[in-house]
Amino acid sequence: MLEAIDLARPPMLAPTSLTLHPGQLTGVIGPNGAGKTTLLKALAGLSRGPGTVRLDGQPFRPHPQRLAWLPASRDAVWPIPAAALVQLGMGPAAAPDAAAVAAALSACDATALAHRPVAQLSTGERARVLLARAIVARPAWLFLDEPIANLDPGHRLDVMALLASEAARGAGVVLALHDLDLARRCDRLLLIANGAVIADGPPHMVLNTDQLGRVFGVQHGPDGWVRCSRFDH
C-alpha cells in the first residue's frame, strides 16, 4: 500500500492525499498542464516538496525492484543497442540477466529490435523498448508517464493488456494517459484539473458526460468524440 500524505508541488499540484493499492491499474487523466506528470513524479518520490510518501508505513526509497519510472520523453543520447538499454533497468552494476531482458523485450513486442541502436529507432519503437526497460526488474510499483503515447492502435492495446498483467502479478501500476477509451480498462481513475484530483473512482463513475464536458470540453456523440464548450467556466 502506497500512501501519499499532503503531497504538494506548488504551483503545479495542490495538497493531495491518496492511497494506492498493489495489484491495481490506476489511470491518471486530465487536460494538458493539469498536473499529471507532477503528481506521478511526486508519488514516485522523484521531486522534492511538501508531503510524504510511505510504502507499507515506511519511507518510499527508490530501488530497481521497488520502483520504475517511465518519463514521457523518449529521447536517447547514446546509440546503445536496445537489449543493453533494457539491461540498465536492472539497476547500476546489476549482473547481466539475458533471460529477464529477453522476456521484457518480448512482452513489449520489441524482440526484433534487440540489437538495434535505440537512437535509430522510431519514436514508437523506442517507446516500446523504454517500456521494456521499465518492467525488466519486475518492480513492485510502476509510474508511467503516457506509456501509450506515440504507439499505433495495436500496440496501444498490447501495452494496456501488458500493464493489466503487471497489475495481475501484484504490481501497483499508475499511468498517465489521454486516451479516454483505453482509460476504461483501468481499475481506478484519477481525474486531475488545475493541480487537484477532482474525481477518483472506477472508470464508469469518473468518465461521466458532465465531468468530461466540464474538464476536457469533449463529449461522446454518435460519431465518436466531439468538441463541446466547457460548461462550468
Binding site: 513524479k41 514516485a44 522523484l46 527508490p62 530497481p64 520504475a68 518519463p71 546503445i80 540498465l88 533497468g89
Partner: peptide
Amino acid sequence: APALDTLALGEEVAQSLGV
C-alpha cells in the same frame, strides 16, 4: 561508472534506480 551508465536513461530514471 555504473551510475553514469544509468544516466543514459535520464537523470530522473537514474534516480528511480536508486542512484
